[in-house]
Design a protein around this nucleic acid. Structure first.
Length: 480
RNA sequence: GGCGCCGUAGCCAAGUGGUAAGGCCGCGGACUGCAAAUCCGCUAUCCAUCGGUUCGAUUCCGAUCGGCGCCUCCA
């Protein structure tokens, strides 16, 4: 197992990760609220989580990954209940809510697959764990960390001295009272947050010992995280915006109930901006993955564009950036294809110096892992890959790499692709139509019928097959 | 007001107290029937600005300018 270090929001330092259970990393990720399509800003966060997870897997760890689906929440209720009459039954309200969340959960999973994001080990739904949440809330009440008011239950942050440890806020520094919900006037302190919300007209509810209501947002992650991963979690991830209050509140809830530290390392991914503006569902300036696909971009290109930036840096999304990512990927994939075949490339130029391909490979691998191990420094890791590509292309132009060398390189390409998921092995076979067009073009070339030959080459290009004539007379192809 | 981040070539982007990785684009050349791919060469005397520390700073400190985030439910 290779050691991996990550930036821990709790300590604001890059620290080596040593899991509680040797060899197995337990990761909890805050998942989507399923009331609409995920936008590319959301997807950046899920992409970063996948990158981290794949890095651990490639480094030799087992990863137990839990990602929640938030399927009860203000906006979900708002959007799912609009068509229901005011006298609708609680059952009808639940059914309507489930219809909406099921629909967008399915779309979310499609997005994950399209971007080659590995499915989490477990994807619990909030509505499936109301009982665990209630138990946790009761636990907090028993410890004096929570109190009921008119059917709602609130967390008493005054009882948790560590409150603010993650966001590094002290209670004095917090602005108070600026946006307290009108229906939460009964809290002891403005910063106290709701664990259980008393029923309101027009909302689906669950019964509880405090009366009918629904869970607060933060409690689901504490309850499900503890239930599924246990009372010691190695890594908890999410977008930077969740640092406060969501994760701060999770710590208060989980550690308040458990009586000891819950998460060792908190890791947060930065935001994505579009044209210099913050994306948010409420601003409505968002693109979904489907929007990119409609514009002709491959979700994997988007994946690469995101992952060629460091996860803790703000990205200003642009279509020029996507185009550049697409070109970079072409170079990597062309190189991979070249290594899959036996060397017979044309080339030229002046000879600089012979290199030892295996030595270069070893160096690339070392550099790659040094970068990834250092808080997932993907730009630097990719630089190692590109340097190898340049070196070996140059070498292969003069002295063809041996089959053994090619295979060793391909192994490295597989290893790096197991993290970046953007230059996989492709099916080597071509269908009959392509084969016959290629044969026809060969015949045309043999008679120097260049017009026909070029026409066939163009036709194949529209089919996604790009031909490359080599010096020795053979014809290579690649997908593009 | 409090806490924090960022500013590196046309664009994207690493990085180090000792003199600027990598990618995209562009230009010239080689190779090619033409291409494609690839190769060779060129493209930041300089890392927002101004001071300071230092033998030496892009890298440390301070200030300034500019962009941004969080301080109650937004990834």
């Amino acid at each position: 197992m290779r050691p991996i270090s990550l930036f821990n929001t709790l300590t604001r330092k890059i620290e080596p990760i040593s899991p509680i259970t040797p060899g197995e990393i337990k990761v909890y990720s805050c998942g989507p609220t399923v009331y609409n399509f995920a936008h590319i800003g959301n997807l950046r966060t899920f992409l970063f989580q996948d990158l981290m997870k794949r890095t651990f897997l490639a480094a030799g760890y087992q990863v137990r990954h839990c990602m929640n689906i938030t399927d009860v929440e203000d906006k979900i209720i708002r959007d799912s209940q609009v068509d229901l009459p005011s006298e609708a039954s609680n059952e009808a309200r639940h059914t309507a809510m489930k219809a909406l969340t099921d629909k967008y959960t399915a779309f979310f999973l499609e997005d994950l697959d399209a971007m080659r994001i590995l499915r989490p080990t477990v994807m619990p739904k909030a509505t499936g764990h109301i009982g665990q949440m209630q138990t946790l809330i009761q636990n907090l009440m028993d410890k004096g960390l929570a109190y009921a008011r008119e059917g709602s239950v609130y967390y008493r942050i005054a009882g948790f001295p560590n409150y603010g440890c993650l966001a590094h806020l002290d209670r004095e520094g917090m602005q108070s009272g600026t946006s307290v919900d009108v229906d939460e006037y009964e809290k002891d302190q403005a910063q106290d947050f709701v664990l259980w919300k008393a029923a309101k007209a027009g909302e689906p509810t669950w019964d509880s010992s405090w009366g009918p209501g629904r869970p607060g947002w933060h409690i689901e992650c504490s309850a499900m995280g503890i239930e599924i991963l246990g009372d010691r979690v190695d890594i908890h991830t999410g977008g930077v915006d969740l640092v406060f209050p969501h994760h701060e509140n999770e710590i208060a809830q989980s550690e308040g109930a458990l009586g000891h530290a819950w998460v060792s390392t908190w890791v947060h991914g930065e935001f994505l901006m579009v044209e210099g503006e913050k994306m948010s569902k409420s601003l409505g300036n968002f693109y979904t993955l489907r929007d990119l696909v409609e514009k002709g971009y491959d979700p994997v290109t988007f994946r690469y564009a995101i992952q060629s930036n460091h996860y803790r840096k703000l990205i200003n999304f642009s279509f020029e950036g996507l185009k550049a990512a697409d070109n970079s990927l072409k170079r990597i994939r062309a190189f991979r294809k070249r290594m899959e075949e036996d060397g017979a490339q044309s080339g030229g130029g002046t000879w600089k110096e012979a290199i030892d391909p295996l030595k270069r490979l070893e160096k690339a691998q070392t550099d790659f892992w040094m970068a990834m191990a250092d808080d997932l420094n993907t730009p630097e890791a990719l630089a190692a890959v590109f340097t190898l590509i340049s070196d070996l292309n140059a070498q292969d132009d003069r002295i063809a790499l041996t089959r053994e060398e090619r295979d060793a390189v391909l192994e490295f390409m597989d290893e790096t692709d197991s993290i970046f998921a953007a230059w996989p092995r492709e099916a080597a076979s071509l269908d009959e139509e392509v084969e016959s067009l290629m044969a026809a073009r060969k015949a045309a070339r043999d008679t120097k019928n260049w017009a026909e030959s070029d026409r066939l080459r163009d036709q194949l290009k529209t089919m996604g097959i790009i031909l490359e004539d080599r010096k020795d007379g053979s014809v290579g192809w690649r997908r593009g």
